[in-house]
Design a protein around this nucleic acid. Structure first.
Lengths: 360, 360
DNA sequence: CTGAAAGCGCTAACAA
DNA sequence: TTGTTAGCGCTTTCAG
């Protein structure tokens, strides 16, 4: 009753049909015909028949035997964040073209969840990892490193661990943004960031601090607890902005913070850039099309994706030869895309703004 | 040289250590201790030791043996589209909690690519599929159906195939949008859609046609070739808008078309809603925060994700019992979220609208 | 040049 | 109650 037409062709079927051995078929299929000196005639017959019946080797059996799954584990912070989904989408495409599948998960930057995900991937025997590491997962990453599973981190890294990684010089981006704002005459620039201690955040903060120190202007750093819910964050930002009316410009360390910020600014009825100039990290449809358009520190997403996957695939290829390859630790550069949100308007309004400032 | 400390514990190791048989360990681990009448004492000893050494069964071997991989194949149109990435992220989370991994790919609505992806997933022996079907993949989907692999489609479906699916009543959304615009006094409403013939697009068009027919006003449908690149689409839309100056309102059938539309409108220097009112399908940060905020036909993303994964997991659970379950074909309802982009500005009402919006 | 055969690690009949 | 053992489907020596 239950034995339907489950006639999945096996390698033994095709060997039997062709009256050759299983090994012959396997060898031909794995491109080892030449090196095993199998006659071209036989090789061709095999290929032709395999083609004809549409035989596909069972990947599970193959994986069990070879220990390779051709699956890459992708651990990102949040696949619903355009920055990550764009990079993920580019990585996925490249990987597929080279015969690798992607299995992915979002950590929401949660340490426990990250650990859990890595161990699940380990159980799945992924061939390699691409990880946007949450804080505190040194041990788990260290473990996969010790097992010599090819791994590339991106967006941030774990200073304690010798990993391949691709990051962006965040300090450079923030420094450029702050300098630009100062040049535009904004003198009281606040930096809105998360309460995360991770490298990329620290880096972005550093650029801000350096720029403001160089110009000897006071610094204001607002740290938002990322765990809070949407409304709480907006409320928090509204309170911050209201309590710092002397600020005439804001730099946001991530796209979602800026989105919350825009919501807060709108609710407060403030005008951009007249009341408050804005620069955000990460480009986004919203920032490009917003009125006024938002100045951003754009990350080179294509480059990030390309380098990450290239390094990983190279590593995957080389793994056989036990020669440890030099660590690839790329630091790419962001681009400041100046739009209206950070540009002083015509003389009239600028003066007015400055006057207000003096009055405070 | 090469044999490092690859001391991955095997089931035989733990059996040997405990001086019980491999079968006992396996049975206990698979919760079949009771039904195989293994003594509680032994079961506990096994569990304790497994815990102690942190033994994890090799999933590959397990899968090869059982034919189950606990992997779900997710085929979406574009993971970088917020609609899909949001749904994907919700699905992923639910699936993980129930012990399933997600392996995903974007088709960009390309038929060939879709076929290829499904066949790759088949080779990977995924336990189930969640598919946003591109046009023309009836055959491939039919095949996985014939193999009785649990499958759920969403966003659109293939009318020729009896599948489980979760879609949204697009006609209702567009109808509501058109009716709303007409009520606001916009009399010349155009519908901007893609050249796709898929169910969800056809459906959205139908709602537009029906609303305009009922009010006996002329229809204007603009079909954009989706294959074109970004700039080409924007140029196309600019030409269309310029050529239809009599139009006072536009309904976009997808979020990305509206984003292109906003770009086109901005470049043409038109004001929203005074020169042109706007309604788009799918909500998006951009639409919520744009000035003026864009009225949207919001899809119930949480509900979509929840229903999709529930149906699939149910199916996965039931597969053993050969009783064919009734087809789940859910039609959820969209919500028209009225914002300023579609509301006639009577004197003084603009401010009111903004206040309302802030209250949301 | 080709074929036999030993596993990869696990599950689950079937014995005992 | 527990142990033995036959595979799942494939790769890859190694002997012919």
């Amino acid at each position: 009753m239950s034995e339907k037409v489950k006639k999945r062709t096996l390698i033994s079927d095709i060997a039997a049909h062709l009256e050759v051995s299983i090994a012959t078929v396997s060898l031909v299929l794995n491109g080892k015909a030449k090196q095993s000196r199998i006659s071209d005639a036989v090789a061709e017959r095999v290929l032709a028949y395999v083609q004809e019946v549409g035989y596909k080797p069972n990947q599970l059996a193959k994986s069990l035997r070879t220990g390779k799954t051709h699956v890459i584990g992708l651990v990102v912070e949040d696949i619903a964040n355009p920055f990550f989904s764009t990079v993920a989408s580019l990585i996925e495409r490249q990987a597929f073209e080279r015969g690798y599948r992607i299995i992915y998960c979002s950590t929401n930057n949660d340490t426990e969840r990250s650990k859990q995900l890595i161990s699940m991937f380990r159980e799945q025997h992924v061939d390699g990892y691409i990880v946007v590491p949450a804080a505190g997962i040194e041990e788990q990453v260290g473990e996969i490193l010790r097992e010599h599973t090819p791994t590339v981190l991106f967006d941030r890294y774990l200073p304690a661990l010798p990993t391949h990684h691709v990051v962006v010089n965040g300090a450079q981006g923030t420094y450029a943004a702050a300098t630009h704002l100062l040049a535009q005459g904004f003198a009281n620039i606040a930096f809105v960031t998360t309460d995360s201690e991770q490298t990329q955040m620290q880096d972005r903060l550093d650029g801000y601090v350096r720029a403001l120190q160089e110009h000897q202007v006071p610094q204001t750093v607002k740290r938002v607890a990322v765990s809070k819910d949407r409304e709480a964050v907006i409320a928090d930002l509204m309170t911050f902005i209201e309590g710092h009316r002397q600020c005439d410009a804001l730099i946001f360390s991530t796209n979602y913070l800026c989105i919350y910020g825009l919501e807060a600014i709108t609710r407060l009825g403030l005008r951009i850039p007249d009341d408050l100039a804005l620069v955000s990290y990460d480009d986004h449809d919203l920032f490009r099309l917003y009125t006024p358009a938002i100045t951003v520190i754009a990350q080179p997403v294509e480059d990030i994706a390309k380098n990450v996957i290239d390094i990983l695939l190279e590593e995957l290829k080389q793994r056989a030869s036990e020669s440890p390859r030099p660590l690839q630790q790329l630091v790419l550069h962001p681009t400041l895309v100046v739009r209206q949100s950070s540009v002083r308007r015509a003389a009239g309004s600028a003066k007015k703004a400055r006057k207000q400032e003096a009055a405070n």
